[in-house]
Design a protein around this nucleic acid. Structure first.
Lengths: 343, 343
DNA sequence: TTCTCTACTGTGAACGCTCACAGAAGCGTG
DNA sequence: CACGCTTCTGTGAGCGTTCACAGTAGAGAA
């Protein structure tokens, strides 16, 4: 009682204290703590009451020591960090994963590994078994971290298809190609025939797949592929602006643009505005992501909504399943066309 | 060797294995691990070699079980989450803290507690001793979490001055009042005399202090305080836009606005543009934060730079000191005026 | 009755580490 | 030579939990 004198905390109650308080053995308390199988209703109730009275909370370190599990999950971001700051999707994803895990009472360890040095340290930390699994967010493919973790046998779920090792690593992704098809079909349905595109980086699955969808629909509509209508960006607003300028210079008759991200689409709007083109009258613009940027812009963006809430919850579900011993799995989720003012 | 058959990991080496490999006892290995005091150079070297050979990594659960420390730190965000997404400062702060802690090899647990329910769960989790200390980010004052954690004796450092319990809780903050003074003096030095302000929420230290600095400089310049020139926002872009409209309605002769955040300043620029006022010719606009938003806007914003890199490293320093037994401390860091196009 | 089966409970023995303590070795000092 | 001091090393004990196992009691079947 007086141990608290120096402002330190009182020694927290242990499973022993609870057992004594409830008049049962450690084992019974432990069984109650872990699901309550093979425990009589009377004991169950006595233990629960004792837990309430003592304010007992299980010591996770002791538990982890013996189970070998840490009961925590890592959220690993191997992007260069500017991207993280600029892209609102990461935030949505992070929040979704935190919430999905909170439902299982599992804390999320955020790990930022932007530099090579940090990546090494964190890989070591993870492979040492300090998290049970990893949610990996890294849109670039040539990422060695995924491969290293896979080799070390760490349960892993990637966000987006990891180009190199899609068959070996679990992932959850939106159906980029189908989303792109929807958008381009929509633009064609408005009567546009000179549809350009600003792609994402072509070493990312999103960049590749969305471009593929674009090409497919043009072919399907019998339109000839014109490479002057294709420019690439890096998902940043600035690259969208630059891309649109290049597009206008190379194909001045462009009457619609499918932009592979909303952020880039904002840049495209800026460039079109400066060039005196009206949106959507002269040029229709379609984005991708349905990020907050989509409605912040001048004319609100028609865009493709990625189901980020479902992506995050699916990532967590697949990861927990994998930790539980199931095989890696791939989950592809449908996208949705959101029509607004820019088309 | 063949334990690996099912894809599981080989049993990782323990301190025992290292001891055997190095030809010393557990105790000696442990001493090397914890600073190497009272260890002969020969033993030191033998142990280090054995660690390299075996790939040994200390089992933190076992260590924590006995030391009572968890060797990890929580980054607790009690904001409603939209704020987190909208405000780039949080990202900078988060990154800075992660890096500062990485230097000590301490992982950061990100905890989002937007709802009352989540706050309860996380408070319980923290007070159960699963982190050694907490970096608290919550600009609103009436936050019960800080008080609860303080009472539980959890080392705690707040970002920004916690209004209610500044004397009891460590905090690190930029000198908001002085920054506001600098900005308003700058506006006056340009010859402006009808200087309005869009404040932050007045239940946040930033909101209060920046307004106080504004008032001080007006008084110091012998200008009468005109409450029509003062409107409040909530740091969001939308509230800046609305604030500027109210300001223009109530005081059409306004010739400068000190806006308590860059994000709100963006809204102010939008509203001024719509009202046909030129920036800076008709109305000079000063922001606060030097966030990416400052340079993204039409005319680049003159703003007050908060030293976020130093704020995060100081927060970590103060927290680690407090965990080490030192008393709570307050750190106030200077701000810097950044002149750009909007003034 | 006796035997088996199920439902439940208690008891060591770990898990991998740190800590306190005891002891050894080396060295200078009285 | 005995003594103390410092530096170094090994050894049990124990942190709080889970797990495997042994054991008890009661119900139903032979």
């Amino acid at each position: 009682m007086t141990v608290n004198a120096t402002g330190g905390r009182r020694r927290p109650p242990t499973i022993h204290d609870v057992a004594r308080e409830a008049g049962v053995s450690r084992g019974t308390v432990s069984r109650v703590l872990n699901g309550g199988h093979y425990v009589s209703p009377a004991a169950q109730e006595a233990v629960n009451a004792a837990i309430r009275r003592t304010g007992y909370v299980v010591n996770r370190h002791a538990r982890s020591l013996i189970t070998g599990r840490s009961d925590s999950i890592g959220f690993l971001l191997t992007e260069p960090q500017e991207r993280f700051f600029e892209d609102p999707n990461f935030n949505v994803l992070l929040r979704g994963c935190t919430q999905a895990l909170a439902a299982h009472d599992i804390p999320l360890l955020l790990m930022l590994a932007g530099t090579e040095d940090e990546r090494r340290r964190i890989t070591r930390y993870i492979t040492a078994g300090h998290v049970d699994g990893v949610l990996l967010v890294s849109s670039h493919s040539g990422d060695p971290v995924a491969e290293q973790l896979r080799e070390a046998g760490v349960p892993l779920v990637a966000c987006g298809k990891p180009i190199g090792l899609a068959s070996k690593v679990s992932y959850v992704a939106a159906d980029d190609r189908d989303g792109a098809r929807d958008m381009v079909r929509h633009l064609l349905s408005l009567g546009r025939r000179r549809v350009g595109t600003v792609t994402g980086p072509l070493d990312t699955p999103g960049g590749v797949e969305r471009l593929a969808g674009y090409k497919e629909v043009l072919a399907e509509a019998g339109l000839e592929f014109d490479e002057r209508l294709v420019v690439s960006g890096d998902y940043s607003r600035a690259s969208g602006e630059a891309g649109a300028e290049r597009l206008l210079a190379r194909a001045p008759d462009v009457d619609a643009v499918f932009v592979a991200s909303d952020l880039m689409a904002q840049g495209v709007l800026t460039a079109l505005h400066r060039a005196g083109r009206r949106v959507p009258q002269d040029v229709a613009v379609g984005g991708f992501d349905d990020s907050p940027a989509a409605v912040a812009a001048g004319p609100e963006l028609t865009t493709i909504r990625q189901p980020w809430d479902r992506i995050s919850s699916e990532m967590v579900r697949v990861l927990l399943a994998q930790i539980g011993g199931e095989d890696p799995a791939a989950v592809i989720l449908p996208t949705e066309l959101v029509k607004r003012e820019s088309t």
